[in-house]
Simulated scan of single mutants.
Amino acid sequence: MAAAVNYEVARSSPSYFTDRAFRHAVLDTMMTRESVSAQKRTDDQDATRVVASLGLGKENAGRMIMRAAPMGTQLSSYSPAVATVRIWMSELVGMASADSPLPVSANWTTYTLTLQWQRSDWKLADISQASGPTPLQTSDRAPDSVDAFRKMDEDFNAPPYVG
């Protein structure tokens, strides 16, 4: 399960969305030989969509915030050759900018990852996702300012991808 969580964290960084060479290097490391090309196409399309929705350009790329944290894991099936893992994750995505079309927002997603044992390691064969479950937000707090998110993003390092 650690490999599956590690792989989802690797796919949840600003560089993954803004740097095609970085994204492809990550996918080359973690995907099976049979699935890497298709996942590159899918993730390239997703990255283009995310960058466009954020209004992201070279001048404001440093203001993108993308963090993910696993809330729970479930081993759905296992054999020495194939495993299916579900990961419930909370994600922050947006721009730490007052004029952003998408301010920093929380998202809740459940990912299902199918891993295969290849090259002496667990490699991803398939990734699917579903929304939620999403908890109720606390009603006694208003969202913090974009400056607060920018400061936290600068002061706290994201958990590293260990590849």
Rank of each mutant, 00 (worst) to 15 (best):
S35E: 00
S35M: 01
S35V: 00
V36P: 09
V36F: 08
A38D: 11
A38G: 12
Q39N: 11
K40H: 00
R41I: 07
R41Q: 10
T42H: 11
D43S: 04
D46T: 13
D46M: 14
A47M: 01
A47Y: 01
T48F: 09
R49E: 07
V50G: 00
V51R: 07
A52R: 10
A52N: 06
S53Y: 00
S53V: 01
S53A: 08
G55R: 11
L56R: 03
G57C: 09
G57D: 15
G57I: 08
K58Q: 11
E59N: 12
N60V: 09
A61G: 03
G62V: 12
R63M: 13
M64Q: 15
M66A: 15
M66W: 14
M66H: 14
A68F: 04
A69E: 11
A69M: 10
A69Y: 09
P70Y: 04
P70D: 09
P70V: 06
M71S: 06
M71A: 08
M71Q: 10
G72S: 08
G72Y: 05
G72C: 06
T73H: 07
Q74V: 10
S76A: 11
S76M: 11
S79T: 15
P80V: 04
P80G: 03
P80E: 04
A81G: 05
V82F: 05
V82H: 07
A83F: 05
A83C: 04
T84F: 01
T84G: 00
R86E: 14
R86C: 08
I87P: 00
W88Q: 02
W88H: 06
M89C: 05
S90R: 15
S90T: 08
S90A: 14
E91Y: 09
E91I: 10
L92A: 15
M95T: 02
A96F: 05
A98T: 07
D99H: 08
D99P: 01
D99Y: 04
S100P: 03
S100D: 04
A106L: 05
T109I: 09
T110A: 01
T110R: 04
T112E: 12
T112L: 02
T112K: 08
T114Y: 00
T114P: 00
T114D: 01
L115K: 03
L115H: 00
Q116E: 09
Q118S: 02
R119S: 08
R119M: 03
R119V: 02
S120I: 06
D121M: 09
D121I: 04
W122H: 02
L124T: 07
A125N: 10
I127M: 12
A130P: 01
T134Q: 08
Q137I: 03
Q137C: 05
T138W: 14
D140A: 14
R141K: 15
R141E: 13
A142F: 14
P143N: 12
P143L: 13
P143V: 15
S145K: 12
V146A: 07
V146C: 10
D147Q: 13
D147A: 14
A148Y: 14
A148T: 15
A148G: 12
R150N: 10
M152F: 09
